[in-house]
Every structure is written in structure tokens, then in C-alpha cells.
């Protein structure tokens, strides 16, 4: 018996979200008293695979069928499902990436497993069941769930658990799996990048702007600060709707839900739908000229004032702090 991590790679590298899922799975395996195995699909170099060992993976099953170098929902489901069955996985763990979100429920249905999506705490083991928390009602609530099957499939909420190291050596072993024509009912033609920036779901720090900026021409102020902080950039819904900013920056109940370590909200009122997407952020800074802005209610730090005066001061201070640390 074991816990199985789906170690998804992006162009041969493991993203932070994958290593976070590994850290999470490692703690769970420890609690269950079983080993943590991983399955890797596609071309990943040995030194990259070894990184999984740092986060507690003792064995990596590699599937290198070239047809699976690009994602296939049916192919990946079968592949991960076969490994899970072969090693008697009690739990299959993965991140909440787009591809993981697509295959996790398929795998759960295939294995007749209990599925928990977006788990935000590591489970407690209660007999045959796992008990853990997850966000519900689009960030407005927390749900404690109990699995009722012998096998579970868990996706880990991005940035909720963090990276933990439990160093071991990951043995690498090829797993015999061949894709078949029926795995490609839906076939990937190409992947088009529309943004080259830091992914806001993965970023440690996100700087976000609202209607208070008055127009797209003023975003230079925000971008300069984000660059200095190595932060991702986000925005409120109206800002995206007016095309001041691209849609993939829109956070909130109807946009992307994020949980960075630091969220800096500038010129955003803090409407309930906006907060639903950002209230899992660990630290929140709010800058708004209206002291009554609802956002201050969930802020850790607040500055009441005009963003056009405050931002230049902040960027100057950040530059100074950086110089002092350089």
C-alpha cells in the first residue's frame, strides 16, 4: 500500500504546485504509515526527478510514451489509474493545475474513489476515513469533509500547504504503459501562450488594482511595484471587463481564486465577490482613499489615502530596502 502523487511537469520541470502536492502527500503517507510513490508522465531528466525525493517520494514510476508528451485527459487518467492499481494506492494526490483538475475527477470515477478537491488542510486519519478541510461557496465558507471509500483522490489547494522537505532518495523505475488510439478522443493541437508573466495562482506575492486607478494608462505604477517585488499582477472584475487589463488577471468569485502569501489590493473596494477570490491570502495589504472601504475589514495592514501619492512612495521605499539588502 502507498500514497500516489501525480508529479505533473511543465516542459520537463516540476512547478512549485507539484512539489507542494508532494510535500502534502508525504505528510499523509507518514500518517497512514505507507510509502509515497509518484508517477511522472513525459520527459523529465533524472536530476529533476530526484527533486521529488527531497519532498518525501521514495519511488517514481515513469511513463515515457511519446504520445503522452502532450496532455490527454483519457490517456493520463488511464495511466495514473493503472499505476494506482498496480501499487495499491490508498490515496492519489495532485495539485490543482488545469490538467490536474481535468483528470482528478476522471480518476476518482475510474477507481470508485472519494474525491476531495482543493483540500486546504492535511487529513487526519480516522479509521478508514480521511477528514480534512476545503474551501466552499467560492471562498465564503469552509467545509470539513470525510471520505467514505477505501481509496481517495485529493487535489491540494495551491499555496495552502507550502513546501516541506522530508529528504529521501527517489528510486526511478519505468512503468510499462502504452497509450492507445481511444485515449485521444480529444487531441491537443497546440498550446498558445497569451501571458508570459508570473502565474498569479502560484505567485508568493500578488499586486492587484481596481477601478481606483482611473484608467489603463496608470498601470505602470502597479507594474513597477510588482516587478520590484517579483509579484504577479491581478485586477478586479470591472477592470478586466473594461479591457484595462487582460481577463486572466481577474480575481474573485467569477475569476481566479488565489491564496498568495501577500496580497496587495490597491484602489479596490472589496466587494463580496472580489473578496471571495482572495480571502485565503495569508497577508493582505489594502490601499484605498475611502476609510469605509469594506476591504479594510479583512486587511492585515491598511493605508487610507490616494494611491497616486502612495504608490511612488512605496516603490521608492522598496527600492531602498532592496539596495540595503543587496
Amino acid at each position: 500500500m502507498s500514497v500516489l502523487l501525480f508529479a505533473e511537469n511543465a516542459n520537463g520541470k516540476f512547478k512549485k504546485a507539484t512539489l507542494e502536492a508532494a510535500s502534502y502527500a508525504s505528510e499523509l503517507a507518514g500518517k497512514l504509515g505507507v510509502a509515497l510513490h509518484a508517477v511522472s508522465i513525459g520527459n523529465v531528466a533524472d536530476d529533476e526527478l530526484a527533486k521529488l525525493g527531497t519532498h518525501g517520494v521514495s519511488k517514481v514510476h515513469t511513463i515515457t510514451d511519446a504520445a503522452l508528451n502532450t496532455f490527454s485527459d483519457q490517456g493520463y487518467t488511464r495511466a495514473i489509474g493503472e499505476v494506482a492499481k498496480a501499487i495499491g494506492a490508498k490515496s492519489v494526490v495532485m495539485s490543482q493545475s488545469y490538467n490536474c483538475k481535468a483528470v482528478a475527477p476522471r480518476i476518482a470515477a475510474r477507481l470508485g474513489a472519494a474525491m476531495v478537491s482543493g483540500a486546504s488542510t492535511n487529513p487526519t486519519v480516522d479509521g478508514e476515513n480521511l477528514v480534512m478541510m476545503r474551501g466552499t461557496n467560492s471562498g465564503k465558507g469552509l467545509e470539513t469533509v470525510r471520505t467514505r471509500r477505501a481509496v481517495s483522490v485529493i487535489t491540494v489547494k495551491t499555496n495552502s500547504y507550502g513546501l516541506k522537505e522530508t529528504p529521501t532518495t527517489a528510486a526511478v523505475e519505468a512503468f510499462g504503459f502504452a497509450s492507445q488510439a481511444s485515449d485521444f478522443g480529444a487531441k491537443s493541437v497546440e498550446i498558445v501562450k497569451t501571458a508570459n508573466k508570473i502565474s498569479i495562482t502560484e505567485a508568493d506575492t500578488v499586486v492587484s488594482g481596481g477601478r481606483g486607478f482611473k484608467g489603463p494608462e496608470n498601470w505602470g505604477l502597479l507594474e513597477k511595484m510588482a516587478d520590484l517585488l517579483g509579484a504577479g499582477t491581478a485586477c478586479s472584475k470591472p477592470v478586466a471587463d473594461m479591457d484595462w487589463r487582460p481577463h486572466h488577471e481577474h480575481v474573485g468569485q467569477t475569476g481566479i481564486q488565489i491564496a498568495p502569501n501577500l496580497y496587495i489590493a490597491i484602489g479596490i473596494s472589496g466587494a463580496i465577490q472580489h473578496l471571495a477570490g482572495v480571502n485565503s491570502s495569508k497577508n493582505i495589504v489594502v490601499i484605498n482613499k475611502d476609510p469605509e472601504a469594506p476591504f479594510f475589514k479583512i486587511a492585515d495592514y491598511g493605508i487610507v489615502g490616494d494611491l497616486f501619492e502612495i504608490l511612488p512612495k512605496l516603490t521608492a521605499a522598496i527600492e531602498k530596502a532592496k539596495a540595503a539588502h543587496a
Binding site: G139, K140, T147, A299, G305, L314
Partner: peptide, 28 residues
Amino acid sequence: AVTTEKLQLPIVKSGCTYIDADDAGKLV
């Protein structure tokens, strides 16, 4: 395959520390 044990509101923050706008650098 999964049951709900409990639903609750997110844990609320303890309160906001305000920094004077004229002294914005203090935030950094």
C-alpha cells in the same frame, strides 16, 4: 463517497494595522 462534517465561515482576521499615508514607507 464523501460526506460533509461541518460548514463554517472563514476564520476572520484579528484586525487591521493602519499606517499613515504620509509615512507609507513604514509599510515596507
